[in-house]
């Protein structure tokens, strides 16, 4: 991640995002119900939710940072720390385990030098384990950002990783 990016992810939210969050909150029956959606707006923009951003979102929803963070940290798909440009979610549940998830993980470690929970030195990928993606008929499966990939084998995995820069 470039330094410029990083700075922004701690800087006050730009007005457009604030308005987007306000709209999300407006839409909800009760403001706090929009918490997750609002966090996702921030995450989509910055890859993760920094402390200052969390506090800002909380204020927009009339919550305290503690209240919102209690929700944010419960979920595994709200990232509270910086991640790489692309997030690999490698399914580690049972069907994929049977069909070769460990081989996929080993290959990623070999190619990118990262274990689950780690980010490549160039900030390109973060590897995270994910529970069953509902793609068991194409196990082993993974997601990269919002794209789904199934029927992984050695070649397919390499080819897929090459696609994300």
């Amino acid at each position: 991640m470039s330094t410029a990016e990083q700075d922004l992810s701690e800087a006050p939210l730009e007005e457009a995002l604030r308005q987007q969050i306000a709209a999300v909150a407006q839409h909800a029956e009760y403001k706090r119900a929009a918490g997750l959606d609002a966090l996702k707006v921030v995450q989509k923009r910055f890859g993760y939710v920094s402390d200052p951003h969390l506090a800002e979102v909380a204020a927009l929803l009339e919550m305290t940072p503690a209240e919102l963070d209690g929700v944010a940290t419960f979920y595994n798909l709200i990232f509270r720390r910086p991640v790489g440009r692309h997030v690999i979610l490698l399914c580690d549940s049972v069907a994929c385990w049977v069909m070769g998830e460990r081989a996929a993980r080993a290959q990623i470690r070999e190619r990118l030098g990262i274990n689950p929970g780690e980010t490549t030195a160039d900030g390109r990928f973060t590897l995270l384990p994910i529970v069953c993606l509902g793609h068991c008929d194409h196990a082993p499966a993974m997601m990269v950002d919002e794209d789904q990939h199934g029927d992984l084998d050695a070649e397919r995995l390499d080819a897929i990783l090459d696609r994300y820069r």
Binding site: D51, L54, T64, P65, A66, E67, D69, G70, T73, F74
Partner: peptide, 19 residues
Amino acid sequence: GRDLDVFAAHDHVYFGRHA
């Protein structure tokens, strides 16, 4: 009070402040 809460899940649940 609104500045003490519970964070995270499973056996990592943490009771404290946001910061």
